[in-house]
Amino acid sequence: MENLTFTYTVPGDDFTRAGDASSKIKKNLRELGIPPAIIRAVAIAVYEGEINMVIHAKTGGDITVDVNEKQITTVLKDTGCGIPDLTLAMSEGWTTAPDEVRALGFGAGMGLPNMKKYADIFDITSEVGKGTTVTMKFNLA
């Protein structure tokens, strides 16, 4: 398989469209014939990230998906408020989501730990006031 790269834009602060990008990613991976269990892992992890972007990055961001024969690499980059304490953000149950987001069924503080669980390699960098970048790799072989 040759190297393929897709980029998807995530609008910030529009909860009704949260999941559009993940849905497209899932469809594209299915068209490439990626095994269903791996597609599911990528879709769940990317959807968690997309929800985070919509909640916390008012200016949105983008998701890049790179596929080669060995792995799928996803990079979720936003220009949001950034995360002051990454260790705290990675702990299960810790959340800063507002009540209106919790009323929609999100913001239980499981997103980042869940993304780490589904990805084979997980990396997060963040700068307060500048934004957050999450890189996840999923092994194909």
Binding site: T16, G19, S22, S23, A43, Y47, L104
Partner: peptide, 15 residues
């Protein structure tokens, strides 16, 4: 008991 489009999205992602 939750009734918004994100319930469908969540189902979609999780098969």
């Amino acid at each position: 008991g939750l009734m918004n489009p994100q319930v469908i999205r969540t189902a979609e992602m999780m098969d």
